[in-house]
Computed example of a mutant assay.
Amino acid sequence: MPDPAIDKDRPPEEKPMDHPLVDRAFIGSLVRDFYGRVRSDPRLGPIFAAAIRDDWEPHLEKMTDFWCAVILKNGAYSGRPVPAHLKLKQVREDDFDIWLGYFRQTAESRCPPKVAAVFIERAERIAQSLKLAMFFRLEGPGASAA
Rank of each mutant, 00 (worst) to 15 (best):
residue 40 S to P: 05
residue 41 D to V: 03
residue 42 P to Q: 11
residue 43 R to N: 07
residue 44 L to F: 05
residue 49 A to Q: 13
residue 49 A to K: 11
residue 51 A to R: 07
residue 53 R to C: 10
residue 54 D to T: 08
residue 57 E to V: 03
residue 57 E to R: 06
residue 59 H to D: 07
residue 60 L to I: 06
residue 64 T to H: 04
residue 64 T to Q: 07
residue 65 D to M: 09
residue 65 D to A: 10
residue 66 F to I: 05
residue 67 W to L: 00
residue 69 A to T: 13
residue 70 V to I: 15
residue 73 K to R: 15
residue 73 K to M: 09
residue 76 A to H: 03
residue 77 Y to W: 08
residue 80 R to D: 15
residue 83 P to K: 01
residue 83 P to T: 02
residue 85 H to D: 05
residue 86 L to G: 03
residue 86 L to I: 09
residue 87 K to Q: 14
residue 92 R to Y: 10
residue 93 E to R: 13
residue 94 D to V: 13
residue 96 F to R: 02
residue 98 I to E: 01
residue 100 L to M: 08
residue 101 G to V: 04
residue 102 Y to H: 15
residue 103 F to G: 03
residue 104 R to G: 06
residue 104 R to V: 14
residue 105 Q to F: 12
residue 105 Q to Y: 14
residue 106 T to C: 11
residue 107 A to N: 07
residue 109 S to E: 15
residue 113 P to V: 04
residue 113 P to I: 03
residue 116 A to V: 06
residue 117 A to Y: 09
residue 119 F to C: 02
residue 121 E to H: 13
residue 121 E to L: 14
residue 122 R to I: 02
residue 125 R to N: 14
residue 126 I to V: 11
residue 128 Q to W: 11
residue 130 L to T: 01
residue 131 K to W: 02
residue 132 L to H: 11
residue 132 L to S: 13
residue 133 A to L: 08
residue 134 M to G: 09
residue 134 M to L: 15
residue 138 L to R: 11
residue 139 E to I: 10
